Amino acid sequence: MGNKKVVITVYGAEQICASCVGAPGSKDTYEWLQAAIGRKYADGDLNYHYINIDQPQTEEKHATMVERIFEEDLFYPIVFVNDELVAEGIPRLKTIYQALDNHKVPLLS
């Protein structure tokens, strides 16, 4: 994969999405994803970011996505691998792993 980092971004809020009752919170999902991905992939090529949608955003890219979440009533957490939306609501590891494979993130040896 070289020196190019893959960025995993999770957008969420402290309050659980109204349509996701019974699901873990966004921050819990963020931490769970780091642990699950770290058991399968070499994490030297990965960067993780958590974006709280209830906080003001200084980066335009994140501000635009937060606005979209509210305008389109998207379910959160929302998971991106680089610029690809791979999960909305309750994430599925299989889908996220497929995106990491597509970006040629090396598996643990």
Rank of each mutant, 00 (worst) to 15 (best):
V105C: 05
A99M: 13
N82W: 11
N82Y: 10
L85A: 15
K94F: 00
Y97V: 02
Y97R: 03
Q98A: 14
L74S: 07
L85C: 15
E88P: 02
L107I: 07
L93H: 07
N102Y: 01
F80P: 00
G89R: 13
Y76D: 06
V81G: 05
P91A: 02
V79G: 03
V86C: 06
V81T: 15
N102M: 03
D83V: 15
F75G: 02
N82V: 11
R92F: 08
G89F: 02
L107N: 13
L100S: 03
F80K: 11
I96K: 02
L107H: 10
V105S: 01
G89S: 08
F75N: 01
P91M: 02
V86A: 07
E88V: 14
L74V: 09
V105Y: 07
V86W: 09
E84S: 06
V105H: 04
D101S: 04
E84P: 01
Y97S: 03
I96Y: 03
P91R: 01
A99Y: 06
I78N: 01
A87F: 09
P106H: 13
I90T: 10
R92N: 11
L85P: 00
Y97F: 09
V79C: 10
F75D: 07
D83M: 11
V79F: 08
L100N: 12
L100K: 10
N82C: 12
Y97D: 10
K104Q: 15
H103C: 08
D83S: 13
D101I: 03
A99G: 05
L93D: 05
V79T: 06
K94Q: 01
K94T: 06
L100V: 12
Y76M: 06
L85Y: 14
L108E: 03
L108F: 02
H103A: 08
D101A: 06
L100T: 08
Y76T: 15
D101K: 00
Q98T: 15
